[in-house]
Nucleic acid binder design. Structure first.
Length: 564
RNA sequence: GCGCUCGUAGCUCAAUUGGAUAGAGCACUUGACUACGAAUCAAGAGGUUGCAGGUUCGAGUCCUGCCGAGCGCACCA
């Protein structure tokens, strides 16, 4: 598996540390190392400003003295500029090191050895009987990518779809169905029709509060096991899941568990009892709450005794801890729920569960429409299914225009269209709010999924034409133009690590764009199938780029067609 | 009102987590398919990093205040 050779910054940090006579450890040095903004300045820079204080010397002076002592097979030359020591690497040596390591590890390049530890990823979690909107896309693709990234970092990922299949909303739905439900219509298009009556319910409830009372009563009876209510609930759930499954298949997302909120229905009295026993439960206006410092109390039961979101999340957290013993749990849920998770974790801590510190909320910004949150209740949603359909159509259109002889066009159009949608969501920092823009999503040029896919497809085409096969290679004649790419490839394992540490798939997406762009530049300037003795090493080089591009896309959950 | 998140080019976003002259893509203008796929490449133009202070060798990044946006804040999830 990966990690066959110590990474570059590691090695360089070592050399510097020794040159500093171990006054600074290699670890300390490594933290300071950076890449110069202008490539002409060097490959790796070491700023001496922090050393200046300790040694009571001018940074330039330190840099000069240090530069004289740096000698290693990795280093070609050293220059001093201001307080920086700028290192130029031995390109041939590093190139061989990096490319050989990819040739050996293949898709395992950058992978870490298994630590036999589990990470629970709670993501997607759509609400039953509500449409799968663009808003849910974020949690789904971020969570899925995070799971892939966790596995790459040596963890076992447990993908849990914590379905929103319980709660007062079902009371509303049951009341709405009894008043205006039409069985045939619902059978024909379940979510669409259920949404209609749900929205209608909300419109009327704004003026008539008795409807809300009826809904609360209906949910209460559902929670108490009322036959009729349960039957309806089951029906709604099955119908919704069927529709969700289509989306998940398109997105290539799968789950290890669909245990949603309802699953914890019979596990909640224990939690409530435990809270009571620990003296945390306090009555407040007929409801029961847990008081917290520096934040509003957490509501555990309503005054009619029915449970709430927080109760079910408590039960879920405890159940999961007992069954999975995960070392960490990620809740991939929008940042509008930050307060809820703070409360949840804090209640668990008060209950004396030390493991509560291993629970992390991974928040993300929301998808906005005209600068505003989309609201299901007002029926103002954009359906993910519609957007994906549009994207696939656009891909189809592009294929007809650019590559009409392509085989299995439908399959490829799906891969490109879906890839565009997923990539578009993952390429930016997760905390940013995203203004929904179909135009941007359907543009397949520039910083997009199809751009990266296209780069890979072109390499695949080269490899086929050159009848490439994996064997031993030297990389002596790939040209100086390859150097920026080598540096990126070298950096990949660290990007994988960083993406995990920051729970940030966009690191991978940005990396894949950089790599694709650099390779496209190389491609435009260098004849690869040159027929002059350099072809085999250039092909092998292109192959390593393809390996890393494909792996990056896989981590994002984006397919990588060989032709498109 | 309080809390959270954020404010960088016309638009969407980066910026090595405090480092060198703030960079990409889209859109716009121009050039490149006898070099392997033009979903590409090359070039041009585009900036007082919301405003005002502060911290230090050094601030888009950290602190304080203000302005602006979005989202939360008890029986929804």
């Amino acid at each position: 598996m990966g990690g066959k050779y110590m990474n570059l910054t590691n090695q360089i940090a070592n050399v510097i540390s020794i040159a500093l006579e171990n006054e600074w450890t290699a670890e300390q040095v490594e933290l300071l190392l950076e890449k110069p903004k202008q490539t002409e300045l060097g490959d790796i820079a070491f700023p001496c400003f922090t050393l200046a204080k300790k040694f009571r010397k001018a940074p330039q002076q330190i840099a000069l003295e240090l530069s004289a002592k740096l000698e290693d097979q990795l280093i070609a030359s050293v220059q001093v500029a201001g307080g920086y020591v700028n290192i130029f690497l031995n390109q041939a040596f590093v190139t061989n090191q990096v490319l050989h390591s990819i040739m050996t590890d293949l898709q395992k390049y950058g992978s870490k050895n298994s630590m036999h530890e589990k990470i629970v990823i709670d993501f997607s979690s759509p609400n039953i009987a509500k449409p799968f909107s663009m808003g849910h896309l974020r949690s789904t693709v971020i969570g899925n990518s995070l799971a892939n990234i966790a596995e790459k970092n040596g963890y076992e990922a447990l993908r849990i779809n914590h379905l929103g299949d319980w709660g007062t909303q079902f009371g509303k739905l049951i009341v709405a169905y009894k008043l205006w439900g039409n069985k045939e219509k619902i059978l024909a298009a379940p979510i669409e029709e259920l949404l209609k009556i749900y929205v209608h319910f909300h419109n009327l409830a704004e003026k008539d509060d008795s409807l809300n009372d009826q809904a609360r009563a209906a949910f209460k009876s559902l929670e108490e096991g009322d036959e009729e209510a349960l039957t309806l609930w089951n029906w709604f759930k099955e119908a919704s899941l069927k529709e969700f499954q289509i989306i998940y298949e398109l997105l290539g997302v799968h789950f290890d568990s669909y245990a949603g909120e309802a699953f914890y229905n019979d596990k909640m009295t224990r939690v409530v009892d435990d809270l009571k026993k620990k003296g945390l439960l306090i009555e407040s206006n007929g409801a029961f709450v847990v008081e917290l410092e520096d934040m509003p109390p957490s509501l555990i039961t309503k005054k009619d005794g029915a449970t709430l979101y927080a109760t079910r999340d408590l039960a879920a957290a405890i159940y999961r801890h007992q069954t999975f013993h995960a070392c960490k749990t990620f809740y991939v849920v929008g940042n509008e729920q930050t307060l809820h998770f703070k409360q949840l974790f804090s209640v668990l801590e008060k209950m004396g569960f030390e493991w509560s510190k291993n629970l992390v909320h991974v928040p993300f910004g929301m998808m906005l429409k005209d600068g505003k949150k989309m609201s299901t209740r007002k029926g103002k949603v954009i359906l993910l299914a519609d957007v994906i359909t549009d994207a696939i159509k656009t891909a189809q259109h592009n294929i007809e225009e650019k590559n009409p002889t392509l085989e299995n066009k439908e399959e490829v159009a799906k891969q490109v269209g879906v890839g565009a949608v997923i990539f578009n969501d993952l390429k930016n920092d997760r905390m940013n709010d995203i203004e929904f823009s179909l135009e941007q999503m359907l543009n397949f040029e520039g910083e997009t999924g199809p751009y990266v896919q296209y780069t890979n497809a072109r390499i695949c085409s080269l490899l086929q034409k050159g009848s490439f096969e994996v064997e031993a290679f030297t990389f002596s004649s790939i040209g100086v133009e390859a150097w920026p790419i080598i540096q990126l490839l070298e950096d990949f394992p660290r990007v994988v690590e960083k993406a995990f540490d920051n729970a940030d798939p966009s690191q991978i997406a940005k990396f894949s764009l950089l790599l694709a762009r650099q390779f496209n530049k190389y491609y435009a300037r260098t004849k690869i199938l040159a027929d002059d003795g350099t072809t085999s090493s250039k092909l092998a080089f292109a192959f390593t780029v393809s390996v890393v591009l494909k792996e990056s896309l896989r981590l994002l959950g984006v397919p990588a067609p060989e032709k498109m």
